[in-house]
Design a protein around this nucleic acid. Structure first.
Lengths: 160, 160
DNA sequence: TTACATGCAAACTCTTTGCATATTA
DNA sequence: TAATATGCAAAGAGTTTGCATGTAA
């Protein structure tokens, strides 16, 4: 779920501030990379990012994309995900927190939110005296109803 | 939490069966690798595995370790984890399911179980018509009480 | 004796780094 | 002009693959 344009501008300003605090600069390339992440539907790999930024900036290199992603992670503006294919994927840290359901048949990733699960996680950590920094919940599902998987059949799934 | 020796032997037999079904063989190397995983306390990388197996079998190569791990994953006997450092870690799929708390300060990994969180996950997937294959819940905590981190201070943590 | 398995080294993928050049405050 | 950024290519990690040799049913 991409952010609306007002939120995007707010994020860019925030990036500029965070960079300034670190003695760094908001360059054209950094802004381009961040805007793609902010506007993206899903979870982009560095390769996805590089390809998309190159549509507006032929000469940008992989190194700049990776370096920018690292700065964005350090600033807490984006988050890294790994869904098990060995590739890091990035998404905006803005917006509501959500978890992921990944279809093992077709690779489609769905976002979902569950406040009660969130609550229980905090409780589980607190009961051990720990403070949560962040968390990741990935649920792998057998198949889904995306075009790639086709509609789920009418017969009941093998629920347990 | 390593398995007891009775469970370990059961797992080895299961491996043999699964291999047989696939027209493969239980070799010395495959058994050695699997036994290390079954007996291990925590979550081992391929490098950890290779180092430990080499203590009993000087000549085993990385390729054999990786190939064995792949077969074990295919057989559903072990699971792969990625805690964000770009290294795959493996653990036995036997025993109760558990989730992980990872200390961002020192890297220590704690296992925990929470039946209610499990239940809610199943509910969340079912409500969308999906069947869960597996899931991963990793909670990142600011610091812990391991020797590397030192004891948690007495002042209240910043619980929310 | 035929198919599968191993060990080695080379290849491959993703990511990071070194360095000369370019850009910004 | 002094510091930060960039692009390129090379290096690095972790993992996979090709191939000749070894091993097991």
């Amino acid at each position: 779920m991409p952010l609306d344009s007002e939120q995007i501008e707010k994020q860019i300003l925030r990036f500029q501030d965070e960079l300034f605090d670190r003695g760094l600069r908001l360059t054209k390339q950094r802004e381009q990379v961040f805007r793609i992440v902010l506007g993206a539907e899903g979870h982009l790999s560095a390769e996805d990012l590089h390809r998309q930024v190159r549509e507006q900036n032929r000469s940008i290199g992989f190194a700049t994309v990776y370096r920018t992603l690292r700065v964005l992670v350090d600033c807490g503006l984006i988050e890294v995900r790994q869904f098990g294919d060995g590739v890091q994927r990035y998404e905006s840290a803005a917006g509501d927190h959500h978890d992921h359901m990944i279809c093992v048949a077709c690779g489609e990733v769905f976002e979902f939110e569950d406040d009660e699960i969130e609550r229980l996680q905090i409780k589980a950590a607190e009961s051990r005296g720990f403070e949560i920094v962040s968390h990741r919940l990935d649920i792998y599902i057998r198949r889904c109803d995306s075009p790639k998987c086709g509609p789920l059949s009418k017969r009941r799934l093998n629920h347990r």
